[in-house]
Design a protein around this nucleic acid. Structure first.
Lengths: 192, 192
DNA sequence: CAAGAAACGGACCACTGTGTCCGGTTTCTG
DNA sequence: CAGAAACCGGACACAGTGGTCCGTTTCTTG
């Protein structure tokens, strides 16, 4: 699993010694994978990605020896963005206010990226430790406001938030207005 | 899917024209399936059930032509029990109080029956319409107390409750005390 | 433009899980 | 107690998915 780091370049302006067509195909594969994973989750098959990209299966496997490698490649940068969002919330003056914005924000973001959501609440593959730590600090900070139950922790947020997300995915709910309502309810679950 | 009703008898005192050993094996299969589904969910394989029951695979398939038939057979009676619990809650004087007991009760019950949980929040197989209707009535009744947000409905309860259950299953959480805490949080999600 | 290297992709393999078949065995019945 | 029917279960067939191989094509470079 995740056994290789063949592709180091930040997936953009790499003038590696590889051939032009290889780079083009590689970009097509990444784009296809991003799109399909976001839309249908991680159970998308490698042949599907290859077909969407308009290349053969072996071409995908050349860049990413296993499917997990592909998932990691697509997911890693998105994970980083999650961390940044969390950090931003953490920098806010009013921690509780920040949490109130953070939760629906995460809901929205993860529901638009169903592969990312799966990678997040499944836990394996991309190491989530740092992100979870940040979320923990956010919850901790929000507790000081008195608006959040004192026994809450990062794990609780993960369970409730990811749980709701998962069910909304199962129900194939794509309406952001509905998502926001559930964000509100998740927040409610943490009131003392 | 669920293409047969070969086994009509209520799985107990059937003196059908079948042979003794057949009935014995059938019981063993049911017991094994109940146990394994409850413990590990519906992704248990038919060979696993057969092995646990101490019979060959074909013996399982004889009584239940497809895996779905087996799932339905195991799940149906448990579904009925869920309906009865819900009806009991519905008969209570104080609907809100009933809901407060009902939610942790469901959590506990479904977490002890992971296959049932999967069948419930996946929706296919056993028709859940009647049960969902009852839950809807319970939510509706509880709203009158003013302690439940007015825009809540059966679907909301399903999303939040099943979501939490699903995550607790993923985290392999078996401590009933923890389950109760989350029951409290789910209830919190429905406060106005 | 031609030769060599790199990449392409269709065909192939391996594994897992569902569902079927048939020869041997056990149970019922006359 | 013997024949027939029912049943048992190991071996087989099939499908879907992850991963590999090698002959062919395409790019690069002198």
């Amino acid at each position: 699993m995740a056994s290789s780091d063949l592709i180091q370049a930040p997936a953009g302006s790499d003038r590696s010694p590889r051939r032009q067509d290889a780079r083009r195909n590689h970009e097509k594969v990444m784009a296809a994978a991003r799109e399909l994973f976001a839309q249908h989750g991680l159970q998308v098959t490698v042949p599907q990605v290859a077909e969407r990209a308009g290349v053969g299966r072996a071409t995908v496997y050349r860049s990413y020896p296993t499917k997990d490698d592909l998932i990691v490649a697509v997911t890693r940068e998105q994970f980083q963005e999650l961390e940044e969002r969390t950090l931003a919330a953490l920098r806010s003056e009013d921690a509780y206010q920040a949490l109130c914005a953070y939760i629906p924000d995460m809901l929205d973001h993860l529901l638009r990226n169903r592969g990312l959501a799966a990678a997040f609440f499944e836990g394996r593959l991309v190491p989530a430790g740092r992100l979870l730590g940040l979320i923990g600090r956010l919850v901790e900070a929000a507790k000081a406001s008195g608006q959040v139950r004192q026994d809450a922790d990062e794990r609780d947020l993960r369970v409730v938030l990811c749980g709701v997300i998962r069910q909304l995915i199962v129900l194939d709910e794509w309406d952001p207005a509905v998502w926001r309502r559930y964000g509100d309810m998740v927040l409610g679950a943490f009131r003392p």
